[in-house]
Amino acid sequence: MIVKTYSVTAKDAVTRYSPAAVVAVSREVMLGDPEQYVSTSYVERQNLSLRIGSGRFTRLTNGLSNKLDNHIAAVALYVAHYNLCRTHEALRTTPAKAIGVADRAWSIARLVDAALAVAPLLPTETPPDRRRKFTVIEGGRA
């Protein structure tokens, strides 16, 4: 495996779309005998599907998450939909049904019900230094 280390670049408009400079390259030996054929094409295809299917991974978007918990939940929901609900063209079924995890394709309603069943009931408390305090201003007609 070849591991490349990149330099940190400025985030100005000139270098935003330019690749960073490679400062170090190292090689690591990967050992093992996988049972199935392994290719980076599978990983690259999954990364592309995730980037296209979820707007949170596109460049310069406003669909980002301000909290890591929200980002994790959005990615988990996308992956669950991809595997349980979406019928794939090559498989002609969902991946979960193809490998025997699910007996049939899930509907969106079933996915939402399952997601809400494990969701916390109350929001998590943010630290006091990050909490925004709002003040109600009394005004209007007397």
Results as ranks from 00 to 15, higher is better:
residue 114 A to G: 10
residue 130 R to E: 15
residue 91 L to E: 06
residue 59 R to K: 15
residue 17 Y to G: 02
residue 130 R to L: 15
residue 126 T to R: 15
residue 5 T to S: 10
residue 13 A to G: 01
residue 125 E to M: 03
residue 125 E to W: 04
residue 54 S to M: 10
residue 66 N to C: 12
residue 4 K to H: 04
residue 45 R to H: 12
residue 123 P to Q: 02
residue 135 T to Y: 00
residue 76 A to V: 07
residue 38 V to I: 13
residue 14 V to S: 02
residue 101 V to P: 00
residue 110 R to H: 06
residue 97 K to R: 12
residue 89 E to Q: 03
residue 80 A to R: 04
residue 89 E to R: 10
residue 30 M to F: 01
residue 89 E to T: 06
residue 95 P to E: 06
residue 11 K to L: 05
residue 73 A to R: 04
residue 68 L to R: 14
residue 35 E to T: 10
residue 32 G to V: 08
residue 73 A to W: 04
residue 90 A to E: 13
residue 32 G to C: 07
residue 91 L to A: 04
residue 32 G to Y: 11
residue 38 V to A: 09
residue 92 R to D: 06
residue 101 V to Q: 01
residue 97 K to A: 12
residue 114 A to T: 08
residue 80 A to S: 03
residue 100 G to T: 05
residue 94 T to Y: 02
residue 45 R to Y: 06
residue 140 G to R: 09
residue 72 I to Y: 08
residue 86 R to V: 08
residue 102 A to N: 06
residue 39 S to R: 08
residue 42 Y to R: 09
residue 126 T to K: 15
residue 76 A to M: 12
residue 67 K to S: 07
residue 128 P to R: 14
residue 89 E to I: 02
residue 80 A to L: 02
residue 4 K to Q: 10
residue 56 R to V: 05
residue 62 N to M: 12
residue 139 G to P: 02
residue 100 G to N: 03
residue 18 S to W: 00
residue 112 V to F: 01
residue 35 E to L: 13
residue 65 S to V: 05
residue 78 Y to I: 01
residue 5 T to D: 12
residue 31 L to T: 10
residue 9 T to Q: 11
residue 51 R to F: 07
residue 48 L to G: 02
residue 89 E to W: 02
residue 109 A to W: 04
residue 84 L to A: 09
residue 129 D to M: 09
residue 18 S to Y: 00
residue 72 I to K: 10
residue 135 T to H: 03
residue 55 G to P: 06
residue 59 R to C: 08
residue 29 V to Q: 13
residue 127 P to E: 09
residue 125 E to V: 09
residue 39 S to Q: 03
residue 132 R to D: 02
residue 50 L to M: 12
residue 72 I to E: 08
residue 74 A to K: 12
residue 112 V to M: 08
residue 48 L to Y: 10
residue 113 D to Q: 15
residue 142 A to G: 02
residue 94 T to L: 07
residue 13 A to L: 04
residue 72 I to R: 14
residue 103 D to T: 14
residue 64 L to A: 06
residue 56 R to F: 07
residue 2 I to G: 04
residue 82 Y to V: 01
residue 106 W to I: 05
residue 140 G to P: 12
residue 31 L to Q: 14
residue 64 L to W: 08
residue 74 A to Y: 03
residue 117 A to Y: 12
residue 54 S to V: 08
residue 120 P to G: 01
residue 52 I to P: 00
residue 17 Y to E: 07
residue 32 G to H: 06
